[in-house]
């Protein structure tokens, strides 16, 4: 079933995007991504360890020709840092994609929306394909779209919390408010959470801890793959309305 998501001319085949953090090692990362069926992975930008001189690199296990690499600005609490990391990420030479994070608080890791908006404006003008990690405020989502974001990535719940889609109503409003793709990022804890996000009409879901922190990450990656597919199909199929009372499924006609 052809169901490619297009963002600024870039084709994203999978509706499940996978984070590469928190895995035991590169080999586990590779196995999980394979089980997930995803072609989109996020990465962080960090100093090379020049003292230890370990020659292994994440991209030795995840081929940038096969996977879309989406660098993030995780750990950035200021606009200045987010811009700095974004520009370095782009110079690593893979693409203009950036998952923009400007964090406002250490405990919740909620975005600093004011800083996020400023950074989005600057980076969009510099030609980046900006995918901002935002909250579930539809007003904010519209501001980000107007500022040049190529998609919006509202959180379902705090990063790593596994609380699922805490405000499905706001997510639905965001879907009706912006024209750019909506990709839920953060908070998905298990398969049903991912399915719910897709049933609401989201274009994709990004999951890291929900898979990496599972007791069996490879099995969970497969679960998420199926959940995203199920949710997406259900959304396209058009569900029945919710009713207070019953409507029989078997005919009255022909009863004895």
């Amino acid at each position: 079933m052809e169901d490619t998501l297009m963002i600024r001319g870039i084709a994203f085949r999978s509706r499940l995007w996978v984070g590469t953090g928190k895995y035991k090692d590169f080999e586990e990362t590779r196995k999980v991504i394979e089980a997930s069926g995803s072609d989109v992975v996020t990465v962080a930008v960090r100093r090379v360890n020049i003292i230890d001189g370990k020659s292994e690199n994440l991209l030795d296990y995840i081929d940038p020709k096969k996977y879309k690499i989406l660098p993030n600005t995780a750990g950035c609490y200021t606009v200045e840092d987010a811009l700095r990391y974004s520009r370095l990420a782009r110079e690593a030479g893979i693409s203009d994609l950036i998952k923009l994070e400007v964090i406002g608080d250490e405990r919740t890791l909620f975005p600093d929306t004011i800083g996020l908006l400023k950074a989005t404006e600057v980076l969009a003008k510099e030609g980046f394909v900006v995918l901002p990690y935002t909250n579930d405020d539809p007003v904010m989502a519209k501001r980000l779209e107007d500022a040049g974001a190529a998609a919006v990535m509202p959180l379902g719940a705090p990063i790593g919390s596994g609380l699922g889609i805490r405000n499905p109503y706001n997510i639905r409003i965001i879907l009706e408010t912006v024209k750019v793709p909506v990709v839920v990022d953060a908070g998905v804890g298990t398969a049903s959470d991912a399915a719910i996000a897709m049933e609401l009409g989201c274009d994709a879901v990004l999951i890291n801890t929900g898979i990496a922190g599972a007791k069996d990450p490879v099995v969970m990656a497969s679960a998420m793959k199926h959940a995203v597919l199920a949710g997406r199909l259900a959304c396209r199929a058009g569900r029945i309305p919710k009713k207070l009372y019953a409507t029989a499924s078997s005919p009255i006609e022909g009863m004895l």
Partner: peptide, 10 residues
């Protein structure tokens, strides 16, 4: 000088 690369992240 800062030399960075891509590492695992969410």
């Amino acid at each position: 000088i800062e030399i960075v690369n891509f590492v695992g992240g969410g």
